[in-house]
Nucleic acid binder design. Structure first.
Lengths: 136, 136
DNA sequence: TTGCTTGCAAAGCATTTGCAAGAGC
DNA sequence: GCTCTTGCAAATGCTTTGCAAGCAA
């Protein structure tokens, strides 16, 4: 947990209470919070924190590769604190819940060179969709 | 092409010039236009068409399963007219271009039951990311 | 001290919606 | 004619930004 704070400090991040709180919120369980949810949880500990700061901080953390942005169609982005452990996502089509999953095999390996069209591939992101037990 | 129009008529869709034009625009090559781009192209043929109508029509077509929505992080949704032919997407991380690709194997098969957490799976969507030849 | 960060409020997009006028069947 | 669809404009939801004041180093 303070791993994250350490890494950030090491990268020359100026440490502020706002940034610490955002990092701590993300550091919880394997949830995938929206920016607004992060703001709400952060505000429990630091009531004055602004939404803008939360957005900025999340954007920076994502740019640093410390967290990943998960885009879901028509909904607000969610942030995945688990960026250092490769995994994919299982999304409920009804309620939007996101869960980490670990498929077998490497999706990148499934794209033959002839289908790469000269792109320099960096990653393959898989989103499994369906209904969660509660919504089914 | 008029396949699409036929199917829609068959489903009880009231045919209007606006809807016809939107369907025709989507029916082009393998492009993946944003709602705004669809509106621009539709307006070339039917200048009075409104953005709202384009959005509504695209939403309906997507709900009917005739086109697919492609969500890209932080950018406007794109619409994929090729919904009846299974395929995945290759996205340029820099310019946002989207290309259809056909990986080997079935991504759904890569998620073992133990990793399905009680979800009723309906689809697996793979997004390959990288830099296109122009941006590399 | 110096310069990066914050908070506020306003701006910016993408998209949706309410409602009266208009068109399909 | 009845009903569904359109267009406008306003509203919405999410996110970014400009700028003065504040704080870390």
């Amino acid at each position: 947990m303070s791993d994250l704070l350490h890494r950030l400090r090491g990268r020359g991040w100026r440490m502020t209470s706002q940034r610490r709180v955002v990092a701590e919120v993300l550091d919880g369980d394997h949830v995938h919070l929206t920016a607004d949810e992060v703001h709400a949880r952060a505000a429990e500990r630091l009531p004055e924190i602004s939404r803008a700061t939360v957005y900025n901080t999340l954007g920076e953390l994502a740019a640093l590769g410390e967290i990943a942005e998960v885009s879901t169609i028509g909904r607000a982005k969610r942030y995945d604190p688990n960026a250092h452990h490769p995994h994919q996502h299982l999304v409920c089509s009804r309620c939007g819940t996101v869960r980490d999953v670990h498929p077998t095999g490497d999706p990148l390996a499934d794209l033959p060179p002839a289908e790469q069209f000269g792109f320099t591939l960096t990653e393959a992101e898989v989103t499994y969709r369906g209904l969660c037990p509660d919504c089914a």
